[in-house]
Design a protein around this nucleic acid. Structure first.
Lengths: 175, 175
DNA sequence: AGTTTTATGTCAGTGTTGTTGACTTTCCAA
DNA sequence: TTGGAAAGTCAACAACACTGACATAAAACT
């Protein structure tokens, strides 16, 4: 067992609230784990993207358009948390390369609704397959209780406004 | 409870091995959680670094020098996984600004041993305090079992060679 | 002793991705 | 009809990664 030295004191307070006592060392290990894991997490997609001459920003755009087809530029901006100039550069190449289609909004003609084309869907799949495989492998090694805990801690680590985005997408899922 | 919809089927195989059945949707949620959480994870240090005119690369250097005082440039390179030119640019400014001290190696005079100065230690503390506080808060919200699972999944998500670095540091801790 | 390899540092150029600021077009809504 | 929102563009800039070439000192090898 790899993690067996992470021993945390837990104490039951009178109110029934569970308290955690964490050493600096334990927290620093968590920080490093996050750093190394995120690198592993992006390594496979990065290799694929490089093959096609794209970067991580393209991946993010493809991912969230795939997740919410017809989403607007503004919505994408608030999810990705970048400036419109930064997003636009990425979006423009994706549209030029016919991976993304931008349709003028029906209700509000100022808006653009973004969709993946057939090629876009294919690339998104290739990227997603690689990343999901890494995630699946990690989940398998760690076991179901670990996965539950993993997700719980990650959600608590997000900024509050990002939790909102995360929650909103959860509600609109169809599985 | 935020995570209660993450329902995973678990089945006990004849050999006693536990199997996980994960939908694409569940894996994609994990991917997004990772993306949003990493942003939260780096948000606080980024603000502090910006204040002093440094970037994330400086933070990483300070962190790992702090963790392994006297480490060599080569060792830092293999941990950070960047080119020497990239690291050198960062290291040079840190040395110029007297946050890091570079001493010629005693055993092997080709090597440089890196240490934090008083000022370097102070900045590293400030960054670390912010990041640990975020981590502590997330751990508190999630509870002890979740923390255990979090660390387990993260380790499984790392590349194998990075697990080696991670493990080596674990063995040398003193708590 | 002479050669090779290793560790480090540097210069120059390039690419991705982010930023700010200024400006335009379109179009919804009060 | 006027104000503001959504989208897009141009220009300049910065952080941080990359490649490739080259220099120096010291260790290691033959």
């Amino acid at each position: 067992m790899i993690c067996d030295e992470v021993v945390m004191s837990e104490r039951q307070s009178p109110g029934g609230q569970s308290l955690l006592f964490l050493t600096d060392e334990q927290l620093r290990k968590g920080i490093e784990a996050m750093f190394f894991a995120y690198r592993g997490f992006t390594a496979d997609p990065d290799r694929i993207l490089n093959k096609y001459g794209y970067g991580r920003a393209h991946h993010r755009a493809l991912h969230f358009i795939s997740r919410a087809p017809g989403t607007t530029v503004n919505n994408l901006l608030s999810i990705l948390g970048v400036t419109k100039q930064s997003l636009n550069r990425v979006l423009r190449t994706l549209i030029e390369d016919e991976l993304v289609e931008s349709r003028v909004g029906t209700r509000d003609k100022r808006e653009r609704n973004l969709f993946l084309t057939e090629n876009g869907t294919a690339l998104e799949q290739e990227l997603s397959d690689a990343q999901r495989e890494r995630m699946r492998q990690a989940y398998r090694e760690a076991g179901p209780e670990a996965v539950q805990g993993f997700r719980t801690v990650l959600e608590a680590m997000m900024d509050t406004d990002m939790q909102r985005h995360f929650t909103r997408m959860k509600e609109s899922r169809h599985d």
